[in-house]
């Protein structure tokens, strides 16, 4: 085995200092890219879906990480959902509608969803789509 900290190029060991393997200094940042597909449904008192909306979500729920630190968030640019521990929060980003262009279908679906959510008393169900498209495997019902 060659000495620790040296690299070889074309079979020739490093001579230049910049080629020695030295620990870098740095900071760690993460850009989440693997978004989950979320389908969120408003439920009436009998558990029947009244409206739904699809969003892109991301979740941090690691084995060994206490549940109070778990976080899930999802947005479609108009609605945002946040789950922290046992607390669920839904926001309707009305101010963003004035400044950002939005797809008309998504806008209508979001407004209908919000109206149903208010009318039905804040009962909703979150279906998270797993990698093979199965939405039934993981779901969570929240009452705002």
């Amino acid at each position: 085995m060659r000495p620790l900290g040296r690299r070889t190029r074309f079979g020739i060991e490093a001579e230049a200092p910049e080629e020695f393997v030295l620990p870098p200094t740095g900071r760690v940042s993460v850009v989440p890219q693997d978004y989950e597909g979320w389908l969120v449904e408003v439920l009436d008192n009998f558990g029947v879906p009244q409206a739904s909306v699809e969003l892109k979500g991301q979740t941090v729920a690691l084995e060994g990480l206490q549940r109070e630190h778990w976080r899930s968030e999802a947005t479609n640019g108009i609605l945002t959902f946040s789950l922290v521990g046992y607390k669920a929060t839904v926001k309707f980003l009305a101010a963003d509608m004035l400044h950002k262009p939005h797809d008309l279908d998504r806008l209508i679906a979001s407004v209908e969803f919000w109206q149903s959510l208010v009318a039905c008393g804040g009962r909703l169900r979150i279906l998270k789509q797993d990698c093979n498209g199965d939405q039934s495997a993981r779901h969570r019902i929240a009452k705002l």
Partner: peptide
Amino acid sequence: IVECLMGERELDASFGTPHPL
């Protein structure tokens, strides 16, 4: 850590001696 994994914050990192290549 959770905020870093959500892409909201950077964390200081230090690196130990390199492993054999």
